[in-house]
Write a protein that binds this DNA or RNA. Structure first.
Length: 576
RNA sequence: GUCCCUGUAGUUCAAUGGAUAGAACAGAGCUCUUCUAAGGCUUUGAUGUAGGUUCGAUUCCUGCCAGGGACACCA
């Protein structure tokens, strides 16, 4: 049935050069079809509607009319909707009549409503087939091949040894993993990498602090940082230690550096594991600095120039601003290290696109540095993308290691575990991680989060727990079911959840297009709400004939929820 | 000063230029002898401001107001 209809669509398209819809030109539609050999069911019905409208316009001799076919905001207003009747008000009735007369059996009803929208209500046959498709596809439902054969490198998290892995790093990690998940779901190959600031003044401060505490790193950075600010002598000693770290001339400093660095990195690995990250590469500023300095010097005079003893990049030529790459002591700055990092990544990985995820305070920095890198490596032009997110702020302001207002990732996870501990003993770690991840991923990634433990990490209502709980419930139902899912039962009623389930693949596509994991989060929450309502209203396991159909709905929901949460990196405990 | 980002219910967040601006939390009320009540149902309540473009603006453009960030030797 599906194959036959696809053929019909291609046939119509190949002869329909009259098209005037600018949002869906003939070329684009044809291309779309050729990219997706197994034509998705939801795409098929949308294309059918678009073609019907184009036929109607042609038949009525209406030209130059743009229109869109989309899901209306409210499920009550149908499954698809077009604005063509608003664009051509005087002809709306005729267009509607054509559509109503020529609708396929996937469309139950067409209506004209509101200011002239034409709404399409899909048929039971469509929903029945879509359920079947979801259950058959299983873990693969929601995956597509839009980015097939493409290779992505995603850099995120970037915690600095000798400093805490705090909730800001955690936010970056959570967003990074969800972005990687979306890219993967869209068919591409993804590798994630991280980058550590293992040299620099912050390291010298920590080592100075540790030296004063007879080798103990506890609170060493904060101590060193404060002393650096307040005490001239300490400041001199710290600068001295910083040089020793670079030239490795002091065995005591070397020993502290090596052990402190390794301890930090080991701790980070434990946290990555808790958060579900597996990096294909770890890079370090200590290696990037050397390479970056060399590259800057090699390109001095062409890409970079000397000014006041420093080597700088004049961003003004590109509508940006000037930044220093080597300071007047010819030491590499963060900028030069980023150049070195670009070369390291390029040598180690083959990729079509390299994404770096950071907080948005680095936006201007990356604008300049990416242009500079593209000057040095023209082959990277257009392959670098900086994706930025807002910052986590405490109600009292920005987190600061100076004032000791740092919340570590570990503290937060443990605090959330305490909050949920009175509700059950099962899967506490997964529920805590899920609640935190949801807090980050529920909103648009560009916006800041004012972080308040009690209010931000919710365990009821709009929360990660809500999604996990709905999922766990379905596992329990499906386990108890004594008959298998059957979509061939005659059911009159359309359940609301069926109107949402089939949309999952397009949500995954849209989320990828906009790098917006929140689209998936929002969708899953709406879906879970719909399921919970159904669960409260209907007895799924029963002797009634519709029970087998409801089991199919439950199975489809279970599949979509699991696949969605997996893309986002939110754990899916089987029991709660 | 220049550039960038953000202003939506009491609070935290949604809303590919569309229809009656959605949730959640908090407040008021109801709901477990029935598949997991971490659930469900009812209810009060919002687009900073002034213009512009459009058949239609929370969304696009301009001014203003408010908050945050970046802007030469930190990362």
């Amino acid at each position: 049935m599906i194959l036959k209809k696809s053929g019909r669509i291609s046939e119509r398209l190949s002869t329909s050069s009259w098209l005037s819809c600018t949002t869906c030109s003939n070329e684009q539609v044809s291309l779309h079809i050729s990219i997706h050999p197994p034509f998705g069911y939801h795409e098929e019905v949308k294309n059918t509607i678009e073609i019907l409208i184009k036929e109607a316009l042609r038949g009525l001799d209406i030209q130059d009319t743009d229109f869109v076919v989309e899901h209306p905001a409210d499920l009550k207003m149908g499954d698809y909707s077009t604005n063509v009747g608003i664009k051509r008000r005087t002809r709306a009735q005729e267009i509607f009549e054509y559509l109503d007369k020529n609708k396929t059996d996937d469309i139950e009803r067409v209506e004209i409503a509101g200011p002239g929208f034409i709404n399409f209500y899909l048929s039971k046959k469509f929903f029945l087939n879509s359920l079947k498709q979801i259950i058959d596809a299983g873990d693969n439902f929601g995956q597509n091949s839009n980015l097939e054969d493409k290779k992505f490198l995603v850099e995120h998290t970037q915690p600095n040894p000798f400093k805490e892995f705090h909730i800001g790093h955690m936010m970056n990690n959570i967003i990074g993993e969800s972005v990687a998940g979306m890219i993967k779901a869209n068919g591409a190959n993804v590798k994630t990498v991280t980058y550590h600031g293992d040299v620099g003044l912050h390291v010298a401060k920590a080592i100075w602090g540790a030296l004063k505490q007879s080798g103990d790193f506890t609170g060493a950075y904060a101590f060193g940082h404060k002393s650096y600010e307040d005490d001239e002598n300490a400041k001199k000693e710290i600068i001295e230690i910083n040089k020793k770290i670079y030239d490795k001339s002091d065995s005591k400093v070397n020993a502290l550096y090596e052990s402190g660095r390794q301890n930090s990195l080991d701790d980070f690995e434990l946290m990555y594991k808790r958060l579900g990250s597996e990096f294909a590469g770890h890079f370090y500023e200590s290696e990037a600095g050397e390479i970056g300095k060399k590259l800057v010097l090699e390109n001095a005079g062409e890409v970079f120039e000397e000014s006041e003893g420093a080597i700088i990049f004049k961003g003004e030529k590109f509508g940006l601003h000037t930044r220093v790459f080597l300071n007047s002591e010819k030491l590499p700055t963060y900028e030069a290290k980023e150049v070195g990092l670009a070369k390291i990544k390029k040598n180690k990985f083959v990729y079509d696109e390299s994404i770096t995820i950071t907080a948005n305070e680095q936006d201007a920095f990356f604008n300049v540095v990416e242009v500079a890198i593209s000057q040095i490596f023209p082959e990277l032009n257009g392959k670098l993308r900086h994706l930025s997110h807002g910052v986590l702020k405490l109600p009292s302001g920005k987190m600061s290691s100076r004032t000791g207002t740092i919340i570590t990732a570990e503290d937060l996870i443990e605090d959330v575990k305490k909050i949920i501990s009175d509700k059950g003993d099962i899967a506490q770690e997964e529920v805590a991680i899920g609640a935190i991840k949801y807090m980050i991923l529920r909103q648009s990634i560009g916006n800041d989060i004012i972080f308040d433990l009690e209010k931000s990490v919710s365990t009821e209502g709009d929360s990660g727990v809500y999604l996990q709980y709905a999922y766990a419930r379905t596992n329990s139902i499906l386990e108890k079911a004594d008959k298998s899912a059957d979509t061939n039962i005659k059911i009159e009623e359309n359940y609301e959840i069926e109107k949402l389930l089939y949309r999952f693949p397009e949500v995954v596509e849209n989320a990828m297009d906009e790098f917006a994991p929140s689209h998936i989060t929002t969708y899953l929450t709406q879906l879970a709400g719909s399921f919970n309502s159904l669960y409260a209203r209907e007895q799924i396991l029963s002797d009634k004939p519709e029970s087998a159909y409801l089991i199919a709905v439950t199975k489809a929901f279970n599949t979509v929820m699991k696949n969605g949460l997996t893309i986002l990196g939110i754990p899916t405990p089987e029991r709660m």
